[in-house]
Structure formats: C-alpha cells, structure tokens
Design a protein around this nucleic acid. Structure first.
Length: 398
DNA sequence: AATGCGGGGGT
DNA sequence: ACCCCAGCATT
C-alpha cells in the first residue's frame, strides 16, 4: 500500500491483492442465500443454481427467496420439472414477471432429460444451445455450478467494473459492453480469482448489490476502494455514465374522427358509430385499429385533401393532444366530421369498419391507445372547466 | 442495434 | 416520477 507522492494512479489492472480483499470480504460479509454455496465450500446443486439464475434475471435477490424455495419444494430436479405441465409451471411463476423465463426453464428441463441424461451439460456449446441461456447465465452456470473460470457480467458487475476502471461510455451497449466483458475476463487471469470462480463472480455481484450501489455508493464500506479509479478521482457519483435515452422524436400527426348515428329501437337517441381503419401488419401499432389519420410535416394538408375527396365537408377542429411513446412524441391534431364515402385504403389502411363508440373505448376493441384517446376526444360533450388531471401539460409543474 | 417483455423496490 | 434490477429472444 505504498503511495509515494506522484505515484501511479490506483491499480487499473487486475491485481492479486484486490482479488484477495474482495474474496475475504465476500466470505465474511456476503449474504447467505439458500441457493448459494458457502464461500470456499463444495459446489452447489446445478439445478438449484439454474432455477435461481432464471428467477434472478432482471429481478432482485430478495424478490426471489420465497419463490425459489416453493419451486424447489415442488420440483426438486430436472425430471420432476420436465414432467410438470406448462400451465402449472406458469402458475408457479406468478408474480415474478417475464414469463418467457418460465417457458424457457420448462423447455430446458425437458431438453436436459431427453438429450443429456437428466444432467446439465458442461460443454459450453451444449449449454449455449439450451433455451433461455444467454451470455450472463452461461457464465453463471459455468463458474458457480461447475467451478470453471468463466467470466460473467450482469448489471452489478458492469457498474462495479465501470467504476473500478472509470469507463467513460455506457457499459450496457456497444463498445462499453465489450470493454466490461473484457475486463471481467481479464480477472480470470488472476489465480486468486480463477481458483474460486463462482465465489469471485458472486463477490463482484454482491459488492454491486450492497456496496457499489447505483445512487450513492458506500465507498467507506468498500473492501476494494483502494483499487477503484472512480473513487480515487472523486467521480464515483458520475460513474457509470448514464446515457440519457434520446428525447422522443416529435411526430406531427392529423386524425379525423368520422361518426354516424345508427337508428335503434330506442328511437330517441341513435347509437354513435366511429369509422376505424386497420393499420398494416408491420410497423407501429401493427394490426391495430384507429380513426383515419396520417403523420408527417404535411399531415394536415394530406388529411384534409382526403377529407375533401371523401365528401366529408366542413370538418370541425377537436383540438390537439400529445401522445408519448418510448421513442416518439406524437403531437396530434384531431378533426371531427360527418361521414362521406370514405375509403381508408388511400391512407394506407388495410381494412376499415364502423365500430360503436362504446366498443371502441373498450379494451378488447383492438384500438391503439392513441386511437382510443381520439375517439374520447370526439365523444367528449364539451371541454369541462376543470379537467380530471393536467396530464397534457406537465411543463407547468416546474 | 432496437424492441418487447413484469413486477417490485429504492430514492 | 423516475431509475434500476444476477437478461434473453426476436427482428
């Protein structure tokens, strides 16, 4: 721990002392989890590890404890799981989310029984061919269950390594992702780490989960703070770099809500119907229905040209609304008109039909959320003096 | 390289 | 209200 003035910055390369310090901390302070082996002890049951790893994908440790115990009590091995029905498996997964994981796990068990004699294969190629086993889970099984010197990177490891090495780019994608995987792999060249690969990898994840946490890392409690470049440079709060997703692209759109009144036995007030078109099978809102509209800078002109050609005279402005998706911000002008001889194919729709307004607002109608909002806009009797919530004007908040 | 996929906890 | 979480499959 010699630190002469002007000495080189803290270790950027894997170092035996750092590996020893982290493993010692993990042995002493690591949580005892039911699927986790005692540090330094014999390897755990691969099936139990596999189940835990599937449940832990994008899910916190504390969320998994109880479901894992229930699962292991019901299906303690590959053959019992392989013999279970998919319905039972999915029901047992209830509440964990990402249900594709349960389907993969079930299918994996059946594959292991059928093709691998009921035991998880050790060869990397065979492992990678199993459903639901991506790079992270492969590394976890190889190191934790089989004791092989395989690296892994999850969200915790990516954050820890981003701080240790002061990685300046987003470690979740592209070059940053590759850099973090390379760094994780480099640690497997340190004998202190590769001698206990399962403990080493779990120690890295444990550190990220309880010390090197995202918001306010507890560097005072970190066993390897001396090796951390971000800490040495006082930038632990700035790393890992958070790539703010680009602001949604603004899309101008113009829609027309065409309605007609259908006579009913209840002669007083006929039922209102709205004209909707079905979007193509590809692209945004594929196959969903919506009132006719178009998008783009010239959306207003194109829509009104279409309205005129369709004989929908004197459209009435409904006002505007903003609809935000992950990557798009739709700024929509709505218009109401009486129906003419409207052909929606000209606007790119693959089908069209009249739909009762009440049905269009239901969840089973197949309208996009934007389509429903437009129908609501047209169906609203009048702008009330006090809207339910000022959702459309979040900017006023500040 | 994007996108969809659940649900819950922390700040 | 975000942000993040022991990710993976699909396009």
């Amino acid at each position: 721990m010699r630190a002469p003035p002007g000495a080189e910055p803290p270790a950027l390369a894997p170092a035996a002392a750092t590996a020893r310090a982290l493993l010692a901390w993990y042995t002493h302070a690591g949580r005892r989890l039911p699927w986790r082996a005692v540090p330094g002890g014999p390897l755990p049951d691969p099936y139990g590890v596999l189940v835990s790893e599937f449940m832990l994908q994008q899910t916190r440790v504390e969320t998994v404890r109880a479901p894992w115990a229930r699962w292991m009590a019901r299906w303690p091995d590959f053959s019992s799981l392989a013999n279970a029905t998919l319905d039972a498996v999915l029901a047992q997964w209830t509440g964990l989310g990402y249900y594709a994981r349960a389907r993969h796990l079930h299918r994996l068990a059946q594959t292991v029984v059928r093709d691998h004699g009921g035991a998880l294969p050790r060869a990397q190629a065979a492992l990678a061919a199993l459903p639901g086993l991506g790079p992270y889970t492969q590394g976890a099984l190889r190191s934790v269950a089989f004791g092989e010197p395989a690296a892994l990177v999850d969200g915790n490891v990516a954050r820890v390594l981003a701080r240790w090495h002061a990685v300046q780019v987003d470690v979740r994608q592209g070059a940053g992702r590759r850099a973090v995987w390379a760094a994780a792999q480099a640690w497997m060249d340190v004998p202190e780490a590769s001698a206990h690969p399962g403990d080493w990898n779990q120690a890295l994840m444990e550190l990220g989960a309880v010390v090197c946490v995202p918001g306010a890392p507890r560097c005072g409690a970190c066993p390897v703070a001396a090796a951390c470049r971000a800490h040495a440079e006082g930038r632990e709060l700035d790393l890992p770099v958070r790539v703010r997703p680009p602001a949604p692209r603004v899309v101008a759109a113009c829609y027309a809500v065409l309605t007609r009144t259908v006579a009913t036995a209840d002669a007083d007030s006929g039922d209102q119907e709205v004209l909707v078109g079905q979007r193509p099978a590809q692209g945004r809102w594929a196959g969903l229905w919506e009132p006719p509209g178009c998008e783009g800078p010239d959306a207003h002109d194109r829509l009104h040209a279409w309205l005129g050609a369709a004989g929908c005279d004197s459209p009435r402005a409904l006002g505007s609304l903003v609809h935000v998706l992950t990557h798009r911000r739709y700024e929509v002008q709505g218009w109401a008109a009486a129906a003419g001889s409207a052909d929606l194919a000209c606007l790119g729709y693959v089908a069209q039909r009249w739909m009762p307004v009440a049905a269009a607002l239901g969840i089973t109608a197949g309208l996009s959320k934007l389509g429903q909002r437009l129908v609501e806009l047209a169906a609203a009797p009048a702008p009330s003096p006090r809207p339910a919530r000022a959702r459309a004007t979040p900017a006023e908040k500040g």
